[in-house]
Amino acid sequence: MDTASYLRCFLRELDGFRACLTKGDLTVPIAYREDPDYPLDLAGLAARVGAANLFVAATVTDFSGADSPPDGTPPKTPDDRAELVRWVEGTGEVLVMALDTEPGTPAWGFYTPPNAGHWQRSIAVETMLHRWDAEQALGEPGPLDPELSGEGITEVFDVLAPRQIGRGKAWPPDACIRLDATDTEDWWTFGPGDPVAEVRGTAADLLLLLRGRKTAYDEAFAWSGERNTALSVLKGPLT
């Protein structure tokens, strides 16, 4: 996917998220938590989405070549629903202006490569997942874009998992597993050697598995080979 495609996806997913804020109960709990000890409601998720938009924009616009990241202090968010919706929309506009640039544009980053292209993909995938989180909390989870889901899976194996391993938060895989997307016919391997197990599902379901929204025991997945070994490889945390 190119820059324009990622930004179109981002705007589409942010619009879906905005719709949840407009009509939904802002106190409804969000099932997925990055921090298991920190419960999150829809209003709190909105604050995180807006803060992430501003942070990612700053990785490009405020980049000076230094190793230090831009200010990540969470901004104060409005309590009023209408103002919260407008604030989230505004952060999205700031982000699009910052990321509407060549993928190779230098930027600050946690990951390699530290450029705008990384953030274009990352924020589009992340916003899609948070839109799904919000819709699931409200009882109406919509579909995930298959192509963008595939990009998200690639990001896990090429960027996120290696970072977690490098930080000592996950063990390097000691076996290889294969993931097959039944709808896009894309496939990925993770780990050394030949695959000892395979899991099949749609690209969206595979992404939800890797990003902690579905379990390996969900009926959406078909397993073959050494499943227990595969589960140990995917235990992570990969993201």
Rank of each mutant, 00 (worst) to 15 (best):
F157L: 14
P78W: 01
R33N: 03
T239L: 15
E102I: 05
E126W: 01
D183W: 00
D80Q: 14
T105W: 04
G16F: 10
A107H: 03
P237W: 13
R163G: 04
P74T: 09
W87R: 07
T73P: 14
F63R: 02
M1D: 07
V233W: 15
G139W: 05
D25H: 02
P173V: 04
T184K: 12
G117D: 00
L95E: 09
Q136R: 09
Y6L: 08
A43M: 01
T59I: 12
V196L: 11
R18K: 07
D71I: 12
Q136H: 08
T22Y: 01
K214P: 03
M97H: 15
H118L: 11
G150E: 01
A124N: 13
G16K: 10
A116P: 07
P146Y: 05
L238E: 03
G150P: 06
D35P: 02
H118G: 00
R227G: 01
A107N: 04
E219S: 11
P143C: 02
A58S: 09
K169H: 11
S122F: 11
V196F: 07
G104W: 01
W87I: 06
M128K: 11
S64Y: 09
A161I: 02
E34V: 15
D133W: 03
D194W: 08
L95C: 13
A220E: 01
P146W: 07
T73D: 13
G168S: 00
G193L: 12
D79T: 06
A58F: 03
P39R: 00
R81Y: 06
G152M: 00
W119T: 04
R211H: 10
Q164S: 11
S5K: 08
E140M: 12
A175V: 11
L179K: 11
D174W: 09
R211I: 08
S232A: 13
A58K: 05
P75H: 09
R211D: 11
G152C: 00
D183T: 02
E83G: 09
S149D: 10
N53S: 12
P172I: 10
I153W: 07
E34H: 14
T105Y: 04
L210E: 10
R48W: 05
W188I: 08
V125M: 13
T127F: 14
G44H: 06
A52W: 05
C176A: 10
T61M: 08
A66V: 09
G50F: 05
D71C: 13
